[in-house]
């Protein structure tokens, strides 16, 4: 029965790896930008925190309530944005997030959309805050 399960598996190995060992979990002390995406009705809530220095995202953290795909996309997103300029980070699409995880099941693609949204909102928040300064 074991070999069958490997063939069947819902998620890619990469998704399961990030799900089991999520990177950059937790809240951030005085972040430069916060993005909240999702809602309780759909069952996924993502919070992304970013720290920015000289227009470069130097740190990212997340907290997520959601399924395996939601946790894995949040985790890989924090890895993807680190070291990127704001402009570069703004170009990260949901497709790129899904591809970085070796794909997501079609029904879970909305989790990658959520990740893109959270990132967009965190950047928006950063830009709004930096204008005020």
């Amino acid at each position: 029965m074991k070999s069958r399960k490997d063939l069947w598996s819902l998620y890619s190995e990469k998704v399961m790896e990030h799900f089991q060992n999520p990177r950059n979990v937790g809240e951030m002390q005085s972040p430069d930008g916060i993005g909240h995406a999702g809602n309780p009705v759909c069952g996924d809530i993502m919070e992304l925190y970013i720290k920015v220095k000289d227009d470069i995202i130097i740190d990212a953290k997340f907290k997520t309530f959601g399924c395996g795909a939601a946790i894995a996309t949040s985790s890989i997103l924090t890895e993807m944005v680190k070291g990127k300029t704001i402009e570069e980070a703004m170009k990260i699409s949901n497709k790129a997030v899904a591809e970085a995880l070796d794909g997501l099941p079609p029904i879970k693609m909305h989790c990658s959309v959520l990740a893109e949204e959270a990132l967009g909102l965190a950047i928006e928040d950063y830009l709004a805050k930096s204008k005020r300064k």
């Binding site: 399961m16 309530f65 959601g66 399924c67 395996g68 946790i71």
Partner: peptide, 14 residues
């Protein structure tokens, strides 16, 4: 509370 079901199922399955 505060924990989503599918992520629990996956962890239990592991």
């Amino acid at each position: 509370e505060f924990v989503e079901g599918e992520s629990m199922l996956l962890n239990l399955d592991l």
